[in-house]
Nucleic acid binder design. Structure first.
Length: 503
RNA sequence: GGUUGGGUGGCCGAGUGGCUAGGCAGAGGUCUGCAAAACCUCGUACGGCGGUUCGAAUCCGCUCCCAACCUCCA
């Protein structure tokens, strides 16, 4: 098993050994949401994936600067680049009769709240597009100065055709063939377009009179193009060249391709060295889409208020469900799969709790079991090092859970492993559950510290039931068990006694 | 039509030349007053057709099907 970190680089379509630009430090940029409506569940998957990646990089000891933007201007509705096409934020502002910035703030707040619910860390820097208008104007100017931008009726377009002819550096990320792009007829444009070529894209747009969001620039009162903010802000906070750029797979083209072109076009520098793309969350085998009803909101998922699911699933169950697939694979959300995830999540968390509560009796001897456990510990790290393979890492953790349960049930003996191995096991498991996957324990089970009234109460009830059982008073004993079950508490009998968890 | 990635046992989902993925569901067993939980055992799956190879789910060719992107979307 390899113990060096490998990352699949979309740019080269290959897994590569990861080496940061500056030893010990990593700059990572992830394309954040456009805040014009409630968070989409797919966003949650992408940002949860990158949160685990962020956390794992830190777990490995790197100092990571994680930049994730908020796009609050420039993202147009429908077929873009035409004067008069509405900005998503502006449109929503008009519909809700609010200031554009109120819209941006409202949905940014909602986004943050959802990210908290999924127990993800905030990024180191969360820049907003509207907060970086001067930087974007400067980048437009640089692109013009380098000959890759042209003005047309107050708007500035990126001259993709010229960029392709001179650099051959367009289309690599998305696999588009340059010939195909160039072959696109200029007739496609008809007469209404200001663009010279269909592949050109706006980097600065002159604002229509009705447009609510507008800034002065050397060319017109207007606003920056959609792709520009990421190029400008990643450059500002991470430098002209940085380590990792991430985002959803659907941003690969044209967004990321254009970002690269802008970086090259403005400073002739390459931008990100490793491009990472998270794949789509599907439902019933197809991409979630609001337009055809094939969608579910995070809140609906939690409450069960949706025709697509039979009941609600907690945020951590949903997160666990996501971690059970690789970030580069599509994931199909189904009710059955969620039910399976719910049970799996509980098994994992119960296993962790049992393991953390174990005390080594001393006199542990190394042997086959000890060796096996140490192998598993190495393996779980190796799996994560292999392009953040969370499903495989989880599979290894489940193998450890089986061992832990066997130890607990007395089928295996703690004396067959060393004190050190138990400590390693506990640290590794805790590290993965708490620090890397960041799965919170929603069970609220009877904890060993037992200082809440609930714990005292449960101790009493369990004690009474134990007495009844000792007296073979099965009526009382079963009544306690059944009634507790009805209120959502499950009793678990074992040789060591009885414990409880919330159902 | 072009680009990219897929089709794995009942479901979800890893795996990329020989060696158990894992979770859930299902069957049998152990334990238990009975259950639950836990543990043990079990399915021998890789779209189809050819080819390469001692050996292929894994490589090559053909073919069928699916998804995403190509227009805003994580």
């Amino acid at each position: 098993m390899e113990n060096t970190l490998k990352i699949y680089n979309s740019l080269t379509r290959d897994k590569e050994v990861f080496t940061p630009l500056n030893e010990g430090r990593i700059g990572m940029y992830v394309c954040g949401p456009t805040v014009y409506s409630d968070v989409h569940l797919g966003n949650c998957r992408t940002f949860t994936s990158f949160d685990v990646i962020y956390r794992y990089l830190m777990y490995l000891g790197y100092k990571v600067r994680y930049v994730r933007n908020i796009t609050d201007v420039g993202h147009l509705e429908g077929d873009s680049d035409e004067i008069g096409t509405e900005d998503k934020i502006s449109k929503k502002a008009r519909l809700e009769e609010l200031e554009p910035m109120e819209i941006a703030q409202k949905y940014t707040n909602g986004f943050h709240e959802m990210m908290r619910i999924f127990n993800t860390l905030p990024p180191s820097i969360e820049p907003r597009a509207t907060g970086h208008i001067p930087e974007q104007i400067k980048m437009v100017q640089d692109i013009i100065d380098n000959g890759y931008g042209y003005e047309s009726n107050g708007s500035i377009y990126f001259d993709t055709l010229k960029f392709i002819e001179e650099t051959k550096a367009y289309g690599k990320l998305s696999g588009r063939k340059i010939e195909d792009l160039m072959a696109e007829s200029r007739d496609n444009l008809k007469n209404q377009s200001e663009k010279r070529h269909p592949a050109d894209f706006a980097i600065w747009m002159k604002a229509a009179p009705s447009h609510l969001m507008r800034w002065s620039s050397p060319w017109s009162v207007g606003f920056p193009g959609w792709h520009l903010e990421c190029s400008a802000m990643s450059t500002k906070y991470l430098g002209e060249t940085f380590d990792i750029h991430g985002g959803g797979n659907d941003l690969k083209f044209p967004h990321h391709e254009n970002e690269i072109a802008q970086n090259m076009g403005s400073c002739n520098c390459s931008g990100a060295r490793y491009w990472m793309h998270a794949n789509m969350l599907l439902m019933n085998g197809r991409k979630m889409s609001k337009s055809d009803g094939n969608t579910i909101t995070p809140v609906q998922l939690f409450t069960g208020n949706s025709p697509h699911i039979s009941k609600g699933y907690s945020p951590m169950v949903v997160k666990f469900f996501m971690l059970q697939s690789h970030y580069r694979s599509t994931l199909d959300l189904t009710d059955e799969a969620l039910q399976a995830a719910e049970k799996g999540y509980k098994r994992l968390m119960e296993g962790n709790k049992l393991l953390q509560g174990m005390k080594h009796p001393g006199n542990g001897k190394p042997g086959p079991l000890d060796e096996e456990l140490n192998k598993l510990i190495d393996q779980v790290h190796a799996e994560m090092n292999d392009d953040f393979n969370t499903p495989k890492a989880l599979a290894v953790l489940f193998e450890i859970v089986t061992k832990v349960n066997s130890l607990n049930a007395g089928h295996l003996q703690l004396t067959d492993l060393t004190d050190l191995t138990l400590t390693r096991l506990q640290e590794t498991f805790r590290g993965f559950v708490d620090e890397i996957f960041a799965l919170e324990d929603e069970g609220l089970a009877g904890e060993s510290n037992g200082d809440s009234p609930m714990d005292g109460l449960m101790d009493l009830i369990i004690d009474i039931r134990a007495e009844a059982r000792a007296n073979k008073d099965w009526g009382t004993s079963d009544k306690i068990r059944d009634v507790l079950q009805e209120v959502g508490i499950v009793l678990k009998d074992s040789k060591e006694g009885t414990s409880w968890t919330k159902a």
